[in-house]
Amino acid sequence: MSDLDSNQNRRSFLKYLLSTSIVGFFASVLYPIVSYLNPPKQNEVEVSTVLAGKISDFEKDSGKIIRFGNKPVLVIRTEKDEFKALSAVCTHLDCTVQYKKEMGLIWCACHNGKYDLTGKNVSGPPPRPLEVYQINKQGENIFVSKKA
Protein backbone atom coordinates (compact mmCIF):
# COMPACT_ATOMS: atom_id res chain seq x y z
CA MET A 1 0.00 0.00 0.00
CA SER A 2 2.74 2.44 0.99
CA ASP A 3 4.65 1.42 -2.15
CA LEU A 4 1.70 2.43 -4.28
CA ASP A 5 1.39 5.63 -2.30
CA SER A 6 4.98 6.66 -2.86
CA ASN A 7 4.58 5.80 -6.53
CA GLN A 8 1.55 8.04 -6.66
CA ASN A 9 3.46 10.79 -4.87
CA ARG A 10 6.36 10.52 -7.26
CA ARG A 11 4.03 10.78 -10.19
CA SER A 12 2.25 13.90 -8.95
CA PHE A 13 5.59 15.50 -8.06
CA LEU A 14 6.83 14.83 -11.57
CA LYS A 15 3.72 16.39 -13.04
CA TYR A 16 4.20 19.41 -10.84
CA LEU A 17 7.86 19.68 -11.81
CA LEU A 18 7.05 19.27 -15.49
CA SER A 19 4.34 21.91 -15.57
CA THR A 20 6.30 24.50 -13.58
CA SER A 21 9.41 24.01 -15.64
CA ILE A 22 7.37 24.36 -18.84
CA VAL A 23 6.08 27.69 -17.55
CA GLY A 24 9.64 28.69 -16.59
CA PHE A 25 10.86 27.63 -19.99
CA PHE A 26 8.34 29.76 -21.83
CA ALA A 27 9.13 32.67 -19.55
CA SER A 28 12.86 32.41 -20.17
CA VAL A 29 12.40 32.15 -23.94
CA LEU A 30 9.71 34.77 -24.25
CA TYR A 31 11.29 37.33 -21.95
CA PRO A 32 14.23 38.10 -24.26
CA ILE A 33 11.97 38.02 -27.31
CA VAL A 34 9.43 40.41 -25.83
CA SER A 35 12.13 42.81 -24.62
CA TYR A 36 13.72 42.57 -28.05
CA LEU A 37 10.49 43.64 -29.67
CA ASN A 38 10.12 46.56 -27.31
CA PRO A 39 11.51 49.47 -29.35
CA PRO A 40 14.64 51.06 -27.85
CA LYS A 41 14.84 54.72 -26.88
CA GLN A 42 16.78 55.74 -29.93
CA ASN A 43 14.34 54.34 -32.44
CA GLU A 44 16.30 54.84 -35.61
CA VAL A 45 19.63 53.55 -36.76
CA GLU A 46 20.92 56.94 -37.79
CA VAL A 47 20.37 60.13 -35.90
CA SER A 48 18.59 62.69 -38.01
CA THR A 49 17.22 65.07 -35.43
CA VAL A 50 18.33 65.85 -31.91
CA LEU A 51 16.75 68.01 -29.24
CA ALA A 52 19.38 70.60 -28.38
CA GLY A 53 17.51 72.04 -25.43
CA LYS A 54 15.16 74.85 -24.52
CA ILE A 55 15.65 78.40 -25.73
CA SER A 56 16.26 79.45 -22.15
CA ASP A 57 19.14 76.96 -21.92
CA PHE A 58 21.14 79.15 -24.26
CA GLU A 59 22.49 82.49 -23.20
CA LYS A 60 22.57 85.25 -25.72
CA ASP A 61 25.87 85.54 -27.56
CA SER A 62 27.12 82.13 -26.50
CA GLY A 63 27.65 78.67 -27.84
CA LYS A 64 27.07 75.17 -26.54
CA ILE A 65 28.30 71.79 -27.74
CA ILE A 66 25.60 69.14 -28.06
CA ARG A 67 25.88 65.52 -29.06
CA PHE A 68 24.52 64.60 -32.46
CA GLY A 69 24.91 60.85 -32.70
CA ASN A 70 28.62 60.41 -32.36
CA LYS A 71 29.45 63.87 -33.56
CA PRO A 72 29.62 67.11 -31.60
CA VAL A 73 27.56 69.99 -32.91
CA LEU A 74 28.02 73.60 -31.87
CA VAL A 75 24.76 75.43 -31.28
CA ILE A 76 25.16 79.22 -31.14
CA ARG A 77 22.69 81.82 -30.01
CA THR A 78 23.98 85.02 -31.59
CA GLU A 79 23.86 88.56 -30.31
CA LYS A 80 20.97 89.18 -32.67
CA ASP A 81 19.11 86.27 -31.09
CA GLU A 82 19.53 83.96 -34.05
CA PHE A 83 20.21 80.27 -33.60
CA LYS A 84 22.86 78.55 -35.62
CA ALA A 85 24.13 74.98 -35.60
CA LEU A 86 27.41 73.84 -37.10
CA SER A 87 29.57 70.78 -36.91
CA ALA A 88 31.99 71.30 -34.02
CA VAL A 89 34.74 69.24 -35.65
CA CYS A 90 37.51 71.45 -36.99
CA THR A 91 38.23 70.61 -40.61
CA HIS A 92 41.95 70.87 -39.98
CA LEU A 93 42.79 68.15 -37.48
CA ASP A 94 39.43 67.21 -35.91
CA CYS A 95 39.66 69.28 -32.74
CA THR A 96 36.44 70.55 -31.20
CA VAL A 97 35.75 74.19 -32.01
CA GLN A 98 34.07 76.72 -29.73
CA TYR A 99 32.22 80.01 -30.00
CA LYS A 100 34.43 82.98 -29.04
CA LYS A 101 32.37 85.82 -27.77
CA GLU A 102 35.12 88.44 -27.98
CA MET A 103 35.76 87.75 -31.63
CA GLY A 104 32.20 86.85 -32.60
CA LEU A 105 33.75 83.89 -34.36
CA ILE A 106 34.05 80.15 -34.10
CA TRP A 107 37.51 79.36 -32.89
CA CYS A 108 39.64 76.23 -32.67
CA ALA A 109 41.99 76.13 -29.73
CA CYS A 110 44.42 73.70 -31.32
CA HIS A 111 45.82 75.85 -34.13
CA ASN A 112 43.98 79.12 -33.88
CA GLY A 113 41.70 78.28 -36.79
CA LYS A 114 38.77 80.65 -37.20
CA TYR A 115 35.42 80.32 -38.90
CA ASP A 116 32.72 82.91 -39.31
CA LEU A 117 29.19 82.21 -38.16
CA THR A 118 28.21 80.74 -41.51
CA GLY A 119 30.96 78.16 -41.01
CA LYS A 120 33.31 79.63 -43.58
CA ASN A 121 36.98 79.19 -42.73
CA VAL A 122 38.30 82.71 -42.46
CA SER A 123 41.71 82.37 -40.90
CA GLY A 124 44.33 79.87 -39.86
CA PRO A 125 44.91 76.37 -41.11
CA PRO A 126 41.35 74.98 -41.64
CA PRO A 127 41.09 73.95 -45.28
CA ARG A 128 37.30 73.71 -45.53
CA PRO A 129 34.22 75.34 -44.03
CA LEU A 130 32.30 73.68 -41.20
CA GLU A 131 29.27 71.62 -42.08
CA VAL A 132 26.06 73.53 -41.31
CA TYR A 133 23.12 71.87 -39.56
CA GLN A 134 19.56 72.96 -39.61
CA ILE A 135 17.80 74.57 -36.65
CA ASN A 136 14.12 74.03 -36.05
CA LYS A 137 12.17 75.73 -33.31
CA GLN A 138 9.12 74.08 -31.88
CA GLY A 139 7.66 76.21 -29.16
CA GLU A 140 10.39 76.52 -26.55
CA ASN A 141 12.42 73.65 -27.94
CA ILE A 142 15.38 73.88 -30.27
CA PHE A 143 15.94 70.94 -32.58
CA VAL A 144 19.04 70.34 -34.66
CA SER A 145 18.86 68.23 -37.78
CA LYS A 146 21.01 67.28 -40.73
CA LYS A 147 20.58 69.42 -43.81
CA ALA A 148 18.90 67.44 -46.53
Binding site: P32, I33, S35, Y36, N38, P40, K41, Q42, V45, E46
Partner: peptide, 19 residues
Protein backbone atom coordinates in the same frame (compact mmCIF):
# COMPACT_ATOMS: atom_id res chain seq x y z
CA UNK B 1 22.74 51.16 -43.11
CA UNK B 2 23.46 47.43 -42.96
CA UNK B 3 26.49 47.66 -40.68
CA UNK B 4 24.96 50.46 -38.63
CA UNK B 5 21.73 48.57 -38.13
CA UNK B 6 23.61 45.49 -36.93
CA UNK B 7 25.54 47.76 -34.58
CA UNK B 8 22.21 49.13 -33.42
CA UNK B 9 20.81 45.63 -32.87
CA UNK B 10 23.93 44.65 -30.93
CA UNK B 11 24.07 47.68 -28.65
CA UNK B 12 20.73 49.46 -28.47
CA UNK B 13 18.09 46.76 -28.83
CA UNK B 14 17.51 44.74 -25.68
CA UNK B 15 18.75 41.18 -26.16
CA UNK B 16 19.63 42.09 -29.74
CA UNK B 17 23.07 40.61 -29.16
CA UNK B 18 21.42 37.37 -28.03
CA UNK B 19 19.12 37.07 -31.02
Amino acid sequence: LAFESIQYIMSKVQFGWLI
